[in-house]
Simulated scan of single mutants.
Amino acid sequence: MRTLLIVHHTPSPNCQALFEAVVFGATAPEIEGVRVVRRAALTATASDVLAADGYLLGTPANLGYVSGALKHFFDQIYYPCLDETRGRPYGSYVHGGSDVTGALRAIETITTGLGWRRAADPVVVTGEPGKADTEACWELGATIAANLMDAS
């Protein structure tokens, strides 16, 4: 069985709505043979990353950057996982009040350094999430999980 690790920082109802949609997509009934593990960014470890076959990253955009919690996650796992996780697929979603450009750039830069492969376009949401936003997050979760299912 393949493992999808969802690493998220979910400090607000808006982020919670996106996180839940991602989880529902990743655990949809048509997804078979993929175990979904959810970890808050401050508790996710290098062991979690090494045990997973793909990743979904969720963060608010804080002061034009990823949350401190997601940055802490990357700081903790970067070198222990650098050589072992190259080529693994990932997806991401970012919520912000307005501009999320810096957060997206940070995720892209860090995952490029890790050698991870972006398997879906990021979902970007500003303001209160609407139906289209949660549907996009559902699709993101389903896409990344299906990518792992097909790789089994």
Rank of each mutant, 00 (worst) to 15 (best):
Thr134Met: 03
Arg105Ala: 13
Ala40Phe: 02
Ser98Val: 11
Glu30Tyr: 07
Asn14Val: 06
Gly130His: 05
Leu148Cys: 07
Trp116Ile: 06
Val37Met: 13
Glu30Gly: 04
Cys137Ala: 15
His8Lys: 11
Gly102Trp: 05
Glu32Tyr: 01
Asn62Val: 09
Arg117Met: 12
Gln76Cys: 14
Gly87Glu: 13
Glu20Phe: 13
Ala17Glu: 09
Arg88Gln: 08
Met1Asn: 03
Ala26Pro: 07
Pro60Arg: 07
Pro11Glu: 06
Arg117Trp: 07
Leu42Ser: 01
Gly54Cys: 10
Lys131Ile: 05
Ile77Tyr: 03
Asp99Arg: 05
Ala51Asn: 06
Asp133Met: 07
Pro13Ser: 14
Ile144Tyr: 06
Met1Phe: 00
Gly64Glu: 06
Leu56Asn: 12
Ala106Leu: 06
Gly33Val: 08
Asp83Gln: 11
Ile31Gly: 08
Gln76Thr: 14
Gly87Pro: 05
Thr43Ser: 09
Val66Asp: 03
Ala28Asp: 13
Val22His: 05
Glu135Val: 00
Arg117Lys: 12
Pro60Val: 15
Val34Thr: 05
Ala145Asn: 02
Ser67Cys: 12
Glu135Ser: 09
Tyr79Val: 14
Phe24Leu: 12
Thr43Asp: 09
Pro13His: 11
Arg35Asp: 10
Leu4Asn: 05
Arg39Ile: 04
Val36Gln: 04
Asp53Arg: 06
Val36Ser: 01
Leu82Cys: 15
Ala52Met: 06
Arg117Ala: 13
Asp75Leu: 09
Pro122Glu: 03
Cys15Gln: 10
Thr111Ala: 02
Gln76Ile: 09
Leu42Trp: 00
Leu4Cys: 04
Asp121His: 00
Gly58Gln: 09
Arg2His: 13
